[in-house]
């Protein structure tokens, strides 16, 4: 077993045994070796089921607002921003959290993996070997360089502030590579419109993107499903879907850390991070604000400064 995993389980067991927390939220194995699943360990035994590898793609911060008791949470350093953002908005209390940062080598993008290997369901024994993903498909060995199948954000991974965490496990050792651009450099409004109208044809409005998003905490009061004001229409189609996703993008503007949980949750593989990174760029330019950096700074769209009137996002 990986040394990291041993430490991770030890830490979880220790916290539970000492009664410092009532639960540890982490990742465990699922039906597929290429897909981890969230685990809620309430006892020492369950702590032994925790794993950490490149298939742990869920952003667990989404669960935090559900719990009033003190809990521990494992987080990839890049997704700690989600917790920071929730703290900044007063949705969580820092005293109720034990945050454990786990050094991460990059997380596999299930969409990229599916594109490269076909059906994920047929992948047997998927695992990380050095900087490769190894798996078997119909008795045939598959070996893919990590850099080719990890999430785009993992190729731009940067150092993080260890002081934010209560515990840090492992040493930062992230990948570095140049991502292949998914969008032409000169993409203009017309290009984007055409692009999204095509992509949103597949949207079933199951709201998995919204539910998987730590910043989307309105949950049952989402305006998209309001019985009173009809912000989105009844008919199915790309226009209505675009309305919902645009609405969501504006609501999480300045709060979205671009973790990509929405995209990975989408059963139709709609590349939603492209939408949120566009909005993110505009927010950064307009407000000189980087999401997830400071727990004491409210999101820019929840404050008003006169000088912001003069700025132009274009």
């Amino acid at each position: 077993m990986e040394k990291l995993e041993v430490k991770l389980r030890e830490k979880a067991a220790e916290l539970l045994e000492k009664g410092e927390v009532s639960m540890v939220i982490g990742w465990g194995e699922s039906w597929s070796p290429a897909k981890a699943t969230p685990v809620f360990a309430r006892g020492k035994d369950a702590a032994s089921k925790l794993v950490f590898n490149s298939f742990c793609f869920n952003n667990l911060a989404v669960y935090l607002p559900r719990f009033a008791e003190r809990v521990a949470i494992f987080t990839k350093p890049c997704e700690a921003g989600s917790i920071v953002s929730l703290l900044a908005e007063g949705k969580l209390s820092r005293d109720n959290l034990h945050i454990i940062g786990v050094a991460c080598r990059g997380v596999v993008d299930p969409i990229k993996l599916k594109t490269r290997t076909g059906n994920l369901e047929e992948l047997a024994g998927a695992r990380v070997e050095g900087d490769f993903i190894a798996a078997k498909k119909n008795e045939e060995e598959i070996r893919l360089p990590l850099t080719e199948v990890v999430l785009e954000k993992c190729l731009n991974c940067s150092d993080y502030d260890e002081n934010f965490f209560d515990t840090v496990i492992g040493k930062a050792n992230h990948l570095q590579a140049t991502p292949t651009p998914r969008v032409p450099e000169d993409a203009d409004a017309a290009w984007w419109r055409k692009f999204w109208m095509k992509e949103f044809e597949r949207c079933t409005r199951c709201y998995a993107c919204r539910e998987a998003c730590p910043a989307c905490y309105c949950r049952d009061s989402c305006s998209a499903q309001s019985h009173r004001e009809k912000w989105t229409g009844t008919k199915q189609g790309p226009e209505e879907a675009l309305m919902f996703h645009a609405l969501r993008a504006m609501h999480v503007a300045g709060r979205c850390i671009e973790c990509g949980a929405c995209e990975r949750a989408c059963p139709m593989s709609i590349p939603l991070t492209l939408l949120h990174s566009q909005v993110g760029k505009a927010v950064e330019k307009l407000f000189s604000f980087r999401v997830g950096e400071r727990a004491d700074a409210p999101p820019p769209l929840q404050t008003f400064k006169r000088e912001e009137l003069e700025r132009d996002a274009s």
């Binding site: 699943t37 969230p38 685990v39 809620f40 989404v62 669960y63 079933t204 409005r205 199951c206 709201y207 998995a208 919204r210 539910e211 998987a212 949750a265 059963p267």
Partner: peptide, 16 residues
């Protein structure tokens, strides 16, 4: 409650 621990309550399973 434990069964629903990880459920996000999205409609993916019902729509597919």
């Amino acid at each position: 409650k434990r069964l629903a621990d990880k459920c996000l309550s999205c409609g993916m399973c019902t729509f597919l």
